[in-house]
């Protein structure tokens, strides 16, 4: 019986922890943001994290996007065959990718890659006194470590998602034209007819929010980690899990805000 309830208890614990963290996390976010508007700004740290997030995440985000665009085309073709509305596939692919799959999948990939790396790096700095050393060298650690990463995350994700959007649509296009027998010209026209500027904009807004959340949780869990290597490991796991959950929650909220009339 117990082993059945264990996951429930774990879920309860996770929820409680999230609530407990929410206040501290909000303060941390506000403090980090306040350092963005007060000089100095550490450009080198910002550029380094921007390159790390935007450039080095490109391959994994690109592959995810191509395959998910392709699979949406395939799934909707088989699913809609019985209704004889295969012509809607181009629209389904572009809307699914631009509104949801692009931002969410890119966000989850980056959460796994960058959120983990950030919390591990900052967590190691915490438990080896490097953060205290920064402070004694007249450098505010929030300003030096956290603020540039928050900005880099917020800026990098829209860039990645824009690329994911294009590649996702191309994935759908490739599958539809080579495997499902669509006429390329008509597919492209149908794609452009289906997508509106608002769809793209909201997708990119989501991306910016996700990027901020990923960087925030990576920094927060690293910054507050305690207790040696084990603590840093736990912080890394928490950063990825909590960023993924928050990302999906905000995905819902933003979708509701823009599309739910």
């Amino acid at each position: 019986m117990n082993f059945l309830l264990d996951p429930v208890a774990a879920l309860g614990r996770a929820t409680l922890a999230l609530v407990r963290h929410a206040g501290a996390l909000t303060l941390f976010a506000l403090l980090g943001l306040s350092h963005l508007v007060r000089p100095p700004f550490y450009w080198r740290v910002f550029v380094a994290s921007l390159i790390d997030i935007a450039y080095y995440s490109l391959p994994v985000v690109a592959l995810t996007a191509v395959f998910s665009g392709g699979v949406i085309a395939l799934q909707s073709y088989t699913g809609f065959a019985q209704y004889h509305v295969q012509s809607a596939i181009a629209g389904i692919v572009v809307l699914a990718v631009v509104r949801e799959l692009g931002p969410v999948l890119a966000g989850l990939m980056v959460a796994g890659r960058v959120g983990a790396a950030m919390s591990a790096e900052i967590g190691t700095m915490r438990v080896t006194d490097q953060i205290d050393a920064l402070y004694t060298l007249s450098t505010d650690p929030m300003k030096y470590l956290v603020a540039p990463r928050l900005l880099a995350g917020t800026m990098a994700l829209p860039f990645l998602v824009a690329i994911a959007d294009i590649l996702g649509v191309l994935g759908g296009f490739a599958v539809s034209t080579t495997k499902l027998g669509f006429e390329p010209g008509a597919y492209i026209i149908a794609t452009f007819n289906a997508v509106k500027p608002l769809d793209v904009t909201v997708g990119l807004v989501k991306a910016a929010v996700f990027g901020f959340l990923i960087a925030l949780l990576g920094c927060y869990h690293g910054y507050t980690s305690r207790g040696g290597a084990e603590g840093v490991g736990a912080a890394t796991t928490s950063a990825v899990v909590s960023a993924s959950i928050l990302l999906l929650a905000f995905d819902y909220l933003i979708t509701d805000l823009f599309f739910a009339q």
Partner: peptide, 11 residues
Amino acid sequence: GMLFQNGALFD
């Protein structure tokens, strides 16, 4: 100026 117990060098 502080010399930390474990050095605390920026790695």
